[in-house]
Design a binder for these strands. Sequence first.
DNA 1: CGTCCTGTTATCGG
DNA 2: GCCGATAACAGGAC
Length: 260
Amino acid sequence: MPELPEVESFRKEIDPSALNKEISTITVHDDYILKMPTKEFKEALIGKKFTRTERRGKYLFIHFDSKNLMLHFAMSGTVKYYNNPKNEPEYSKIQIEFKNGDYLSIVSVRKLGRVQIVNEISEYAKENEIGPDALKLTLDEFKMIMENKKRSYAKTALMDQSAISGIGNEYSDEILFQAKIYPKTKISTLKSATIETLYESILEVLNTAIELNIKNTKFPNEYLMLHRDKEENCPKCGSGIKRYEISSRHGFYCPKCQSE
DNA sequence: CGTCCTGTTATCGG
DNA sequence: GCCGATAACAGGAC
């Protein structure tokens, strides 16, 4: 379930560990998520050093030479850095060994996800309709995007990666909960002030998750995230959290705080 | 055993 | 062409 904050935590794991080390060996255990020939992949990386990382939405780019190793984690992906081959994680699909004896594994429990070498990030983003990163939007840009998505449900608009990249099912529920917006509200019916609230909630929720390094910690109690799965009571008003369905995907909301 | 569930993509109908 | 609904993908968890 990596959404923007989880991918950001992967980036923060890689930055102090896997950069500026010569790649010596690449072992591909399962080439299903590798969207290019294994031979070509290895040849491009062996002998090279990663120099920096860049995240865009749920995509992570690891720069080397003038190219990028692109990782998309889909539903079950993660990365792990370690220095003893015995610690190679379960479901490690691709293992990158550095000359100093350290390793970086690209892990995916299921086979969904993408690993690829791409040139320009902006070019890749354009070709694959990856919209602007949710944390790099100005309020004016956000308003323009919402104007273009005005016929959509609020939830669907937030999750449209071509409009804004980085927000998935769980975070969209959390953002709408904090903004007190019913998920199936049509964007066109939102007042300008509510759009601003929505914008602020996006930043607040995503930045909170990043600051907490959410991969390893939990959200504060007043977040929906902790209470959603068990359909507990709303941490703000105490009434029951309700499960709903949207495009055959399920979500949660508080009917009292997020009235229709 | 069947159902759930995640992100993305393709396809269909409105 | 935009939108929502649906299924497909894959497989571990329950």
